[in-house]
Design a binder for these strands. Structure first.
Length: 588
RNA sequence: GGAGGUGUAGCUCAGUCGGUAGAGCAACGGACUUUUAAUCCGUAGGUCCUGGGUUCGAGCCCCAGCACCUUCACCA
């Protein structure tokens, strides 16, 4: 799954830069001079902490200090949770412990430690080793089991873990913690007798949200809970702000997005959704790479924002004194590359559209576009199905996926129905009967004045058909006049070889048999430009793109997939802002 | 941009008819060596989004503004 990214790979120059940028911190970090980690024995971490409080004298007092604003309350008012945390930060430093931690070699991810549970054994007094009862099977009274099998001692592997304190259950001279890293949770047992007076006093200074490291032995408590029985504690970082409610978490959607770090750290499932997003994106790349598609990086700054009908963001290049647009699509540059001979090409990247924000729209979003020379829209349909099915396999292999109150069945093959067929079924009108379509459009309150019959038809389709498509369903063979970049069917110039994939009323993918006739392309651009506002994206003819087509682009299939929406559907998230780490927000 | 809703302790939320501001969690003090959102006793914590207005009196009613949510439009 996730590659080990331990501290060994840490860029020391980056780190020293970070240290020297802090007041009083220059030269403090000396770990680069230490021997390699292999020579460091587990549990005997060599950090000899300097007298840390000389470096941060202001942290090490509980005297009142100036309070510039409400964010830093008086430190002597310990009823304020933030002041209490700062006070404890000072007490930790006074104990000679760096409250901001240090490199922590040879630690294991908690998820891996949990997999070591079968190494926990019970050794009887006469030297026999016994397997523990199967705790997953149901209620096991482990205290009773030990009494029945005793006398004896539990043995388990020595482990080193680190994570954030999520729950704390103090019980006299015992403290139970639940700590979490990005692979899972595990309980920590801290007994005064077991860790010693020093570490137990340190543990009393722990707060929810702090990061700690633990050396200990893996075992089971009387209730059977897999637990690291602490032998040595390592403080790693203090959380100075107050974490959200330990049970309800952070609920305010604005705060969740604004403080995504807190959302990720404290709300169940959020981190998993974003790790799943990465899995989906990796799977898409893998699928395309296996099909010998070549990933490229086109320009983000365009002189003409083309390839889609959307308003662009405008920016300015100072040295050239030139207006530039953030790209609204990847299409036109990828096709230029096909002319150049990259016969299977894709880009998976961010595009920007200066449009409204909604539960399905963010001004910047991630798009995949893929082009395959000598393919057509049928080849792209097969590819789309493969991309989605492989992504599902990369997650958990479950083809029935909940979305809101529905369940979407992604078992291939997906349905394929023509636009006309679906129009007849859901709108109840023959799509070939322009007058009947117009009457229907009028009756549902659409503005039909001065509009091309196919445009009216498409508005009816969007109003009546799209929302009804629970899918996944490929809608194929669109009216040609609404698809300016699409090749017509050989036997019917009224029909464009195009499909859109719909799931839960949402457009997930869009693909064409690409138009490669430069003269027809130029003509269609011009037709589309007529009557358009200057600020609209396609209102500038991309002459260089037409020139590229004159150098001969192979006939090809082209596909666009909205990655954020795919992640929404596969992860069961109803809002696009729940699958984008940092969605656009107004300033605080 | 239009319409509707929400804004109260660090977090999650109550707040009746307009009459002294409430709970749980978190915090602080105390008890507890096998707990599971630990429990028990005690303490402290408020710019009721902001600014006006009505009223003897406003968290509550009225007006304006700000932010977020839902929905529509633009769009994918």
């Amino acid at each position: 799954m996730t590659k080990e990214s331990g501290p060994k790979q840490k860029d020391s120059s980056l780190y020293s830069c970070k240290a020297s940028s802090r007041e009083g911190g220059g030269g403090r970090r000396t770990f680069r001079l230490r021997p390699p980690s292999s020579t460091i024995a587990l549990g005997s971490h060599p950090l000899r902490t300097p007298p840390y409080y000389f470096l941060f004298p202001n942290l090490c007092t509980s005297q009142p200090v100036a309070t510039p604003d409400r964010q830093t309350p008086p430190e002597n008012d310990l009823s304020d949770p933030r002041a209490a945390r700062r006070h404890k930060l000072g007490l930790i430093a006074e104990r000679g412990i760096d409250p901001w931690g240090a490199r922590f070699d040879d630690r294991r991810f908690i998820g891996d430690v949990r997999k070591m549970s079968d190494q926990v054994r019970f050794q009887t007094a006469d030297g026999q080793t016994r397997e523990l009862p199967d705790f997953d099977a149901g209620d096991v009274d482990y205290r009773q089991w030990k009494a029945d099998n005793g006398p004896g001692t539990e043995t388990g592997p020595q482990v080193r873990v680190a994570g954030r304190i999520m729950l704390s259950r103090p019980a006299g001279k015992l403290i139970f913690l639940t700590i979490r890293d990005w692979t899972g949770d595990i309980q920590i047992f801290i007994g005064k007798k077991q860790v010693g007076e020093q570490d137990f006093e340190l543990a009393k200074l722990f707060d929810l949200g702090d990061l700690i490291g633990v050396d200990g032995r893996l075992g089971r408590t009387n209730t059977g809970e897999l637990t690291v029985f602490a032998e040595k504690l390592h403080f790693q970082a203090k959380m100075l702000d107050v974490p959200p409610d330990k049970h309800a978490g952070l609920n305010d959607p604005d705060l969740k997005q604004r403080m995504r770090y807190a959302d990720l750290a404290f709300n169940d499932g959020v981190l998993q959704t974003f790790l799943d997003r990465t899995k989906i994106v990796k799977s898409i790349r893998r699928t395309l790479d296996e099909d010998r598609f070549c990933e490229v990086e086109g320009p983000t700054l365009h002189t003409i924002a083309g390839g889609a009908a959307a308003r662009p963001f405008v920016t300015h290049h100072n040295a050239l004194d030139m207006k530039l647009f953030l790209r609204i699509a990847l299409e036109l540059h990828l096709k230029r590359l096909m002319v150049g001979g990259i016969e299977r090409v894709y880009e998976l990247g961010r595009v920007y559209r200066n449009e409204g924000i909604s539960v399905r729209h963010n001004p910047e979003f991630t798009m995949l576009e893929a082009y395959q020379a000598y393919g057509d829209y049928e080849s792209m349909m097969d590819l789309t199905e493969r991309l989605i099915c492989n992504a599902i396999e990369a997650l958990d292999g479950r083809y029935q996926r909940p979305f809101g109150d529905k369940t979407v069945d992604f078992t291939p093959p997906f349905q394929r129905r023509t636009y006309a067929d679906l129009f007849q079924q859901y709108a109840g009108v023959d799509p070939g009967d322009a007058e009947a379509v117009r009457r229907l459009a009028d009756s549902i309150g659409l503005d039909t004045a001065d509009k091309h019959p196919d445009v009216v038809k498409n508005e009816v389709f969007e109003a009546r058909v799209e929302d009804a498509l629970e899918g996944p369903i490929f809608v194929i063979d669109y009216p040609a006049s609404i698809c300016p970049l699409t090749k017509r069917k050989a036997d019917n110039p009224e029909i464009a070889e195009r499909f859109e994939l719909f799931v839960c009323g949402m457009e997930l993918a869009n693909a064409y048999t690409e138009l490669n006739d430069p003269d027809l392309q130029e003509q269609l651009f011009k037709t589309q430009l007529e009557g358009m506002e200057e600020e609209d994206s396609m209102a500038h003819m991309d002459r260089d793109f037409v020139r590229a087509l004159r150098h001969a682009m192979p006939p090809a299939g082209g596909l666009g997939v909205g990655i954020d929406r795919l992640v929404m559907l596969l992860c069961g998230q109803k809002s696009i802002r729940d699958v984008i780490l940092f969605p656009v927000l107004r300033p605080e």
